[in-house]
Design a protein around this nucleic acid. Structure first.
Length: 516
RNA sequence: GCCGAGAUAUCCAAGCCUGGUAUGGAGCGGGCCUGCUAAGUCCGUGCAGUAAUGCUCGAGGGUUCGAAUCCCUCUCUCGGCGCCA
């Protein structure tokens, strides 16, 4: 059932609780009306990640889960003096403080108005426990309902209109941050694993990182994914690391790889031990940076008590995807529903057009075909005349389907009856058979007559006690008049692009179905 | 962070400078005309109301007899520059 959004919002503004309770009427509880249809499709991002995981595991890396949240102090330990620059890009997590709520005389009166039976002492106790953290925010309403024995809507009212302290809360930042790069997590993790796990330690993780970008554009998102791996061993060289990196990229399908030692090394890497990796874009032939790696700085390691060399390499998942999918806007790639104009090709439009009604039974389909064939054979016969298109039994009833034209001196059918429905440059057109067709147009395979025959056949299937069913279609000017259905998203597309739907013409068809 | 452009009914737009009935097209619906073929003609089409009428141009406020239009605040969108470890 469609929601009446305007009505719902109006009511919700006046009385949220009432709106909430009444909204249940829009939803159905019982019955079997829906089955999943076959629309399954992976998101290219996760498809890529799935494939990458398999490659990393196969190469000998162990997958681990890294926390998303990290203390800001770790960043100082890893980056040293550079840290403040890094912190600028971080999302700090904040929380709402628990308010002190006293019950003034004024509040007492408001509470009495909502429900005079409320036990004020118990209420005070609940609020105190909430402040102390004994009751979680999620459970506050539930506690009010259960312990004060009041209705849920009244509990909501208490919070909404009496204890307005909840509404004016300002978030207070903590020293926790969302990870801005996976590396931030490797230090504490390797520190914890050191001594517990045999060397070499070979780990990888694929997951999101978060950066407070100033604005989002073609190449920047708040959230993007990184493939990150580390190798900790007492005997390993940068050359080894680069060789492994090259290997990984080869498995990903990229052979043209270029390494460059970074001139300005990040402080968590050792000097002259950080490199960037470029691959040649298969289409533009430009060198694109897709990742970097190197040895972690022994200073940073020491701050985490790490005693062995750590080689690290990381790549941006979205960067790869952009190459792979030939997409130059990262937003279209990851969040197409927000950013990408949904565009339907002529082919897709053609597929979105079907009969509004069509026969469901075998005999119904037979009737439809009989009508079409009869019309094809007799379309140029001169009126007046009446032709039997089909005779037979349907659902125990003997019926006879006649095609007729009474007017003298004209043909059985109007000239547009056999018009074909074509799609061209986003337009839906009904074109005369045999006429010149648009060069790149797509034929839907549907003629006016096919659609009409489908409708007639369906109506005959639905025939109840009527003795006679008469169809007369003269001039048409809309798809609905000839039983054509254009799916909503296609219609929206055509509409929003200001394209035409031009299904018109003189059809002049008469069909009568009689029970004999 | 700085600068610029924008938000109008189901969709696409016009109206804004210069305040005075919400304009056009598409789509949708209806009437008339009928043998018209990239297509005849007229009407309806934001919301509430039986009606008179009232309300509606992102939200809120202000100026004014009168605001889509002028002023202020806010929200969101798009673009450019900067930042992007």
């Amino acid at each position: 059932m469609k929601f009446d959004i305007k009505k719902i919002l109006e009511l919700a503004n006046v009385d949220y609780e009432k709106a909430w309770i009444e909204s249940a009427k829009y939803l159905e509880k019982n019955g079997k009306k829906f089955k999943l249809i076959n629309k399954g499709r992976p998101h290219p991002l996760y498809e890529f990640i799935e494939n990458a995981r398999a490659i990393m595991i196969q190469m000998g890396f162990e997958e681990i889960v890294l926390p998303m949240i990290i203390e800001a102090s770790h960043v100082y330990r890893e980056y040293g003096p550079e840290a403040p620059l890094i912190l600028d890009r971080l999302f700090y997590l904040a929380g709402l403080p628990r308010p002190d709520i006293g019950i003034s005389a004024e509040k007492e009166q408001m509470i009495r108005q909502i429900d005079s039976s409320i036990d004020l002492n118990e209420l005070k106790k609940i609020l105190r426990e909430f402040k102390l953290g004994k009751i979680e925010a999620d459970d506050l309403i539930e506690s009010l309902v259960l312990r004060l024995k009041i209705k849920e809507e009244n509990a909501t009212k208490l919070v909404d209109s009496v204890f307005t302290e909840f509404k004016i809360l300002k978030p207070i930042p903590t020293n926790l941050t969302l990870r801005s790069h996976t590396t931030a997590l490797w230090f504490p993790v390797l520190s914890a694993l050191q001594g517990k796990k045999e060397l070499p330690i070979q780990l990888f993780h694929i997951g999101p990182k978060f950066r407070r970008e100033q604005n989002l554009d073609k190449t920047h998102l708040y959230t993007s994914n990184t493939i990150s791996c580390v190798i900790m061993h007492d005997e390993i060289t940068l050359e080894d690391g680069m060789g492994i990196t090259k290997n990984i990229l080869e498995k990903f399908g990229y052979k043209d790889v270029k390494f460059e030692i970074k001139k300005a090394t990040s402080k968590y890497y050792a000097p002259q031990m950080e490199f960037e990796v470029f691959i040649k874009h298969p289409i533009t032939n430009n060198w694109l940076e897709i990742g970097d790696g190197g040895f972690y700085s022994p200073v940073s390691c020491a701050k985490f008590s790490i005693q062995f060399p750590v080689f690290n390499f990381g790549m941006g998942v979205e960067r790869f995807l952009m190459i792979q999918e030939k997409e130059d806007d990262i937003r279209n790639l990851v969040y197409p529903y927000f950013y990408k104009d949904i565009i339907f090709s002529d082919q897709e439009i053609a597929e979105g057009i079907c009969f509004e009604n069509e026969p469901m039974t075998k005999v119904g389909k037979e009737i439809m075909n009989a009508i079409i064939q009869t019309l094809e054979r007799h379309k140029d016969d001169m009126a007046p005349l009446e032709i039997v298109a089909w005779k037979g039994k349907i659902f125990g009833k003997k019926v006879e389907i006649m095609i007729w034209e009474n007017e003298e001196g004209v043909k059985l059918l109007g000239p547009a009856a056999f018009n074909e429905i074509w799609i061209n440059e986003g337009k839906i057109l009904g074109l005369k058979p045999g006429a010149e067709k648009p060069q790149h147009g797509i034929y839907t395979g549907i003629r006016y007559i096919d659609s009409i025959a489908a409708l007639v056949a369906r109506k005959i299937e639905e025939l109840n006690d009527q003795k006679e069913l008469k169809f007369r279609i003269k001039m048409v000017k809309r798809p609905s008049e000839i039983n054509l259905h254009i799916n909503d998203s296609i219609r929206y597309f055509i509409n929003s692009k200001n394209k035409k739907i031009d299904i018109r013409g003189p059809i002049f068809i008469g069909i009568t179905c009689r029970i004999v």
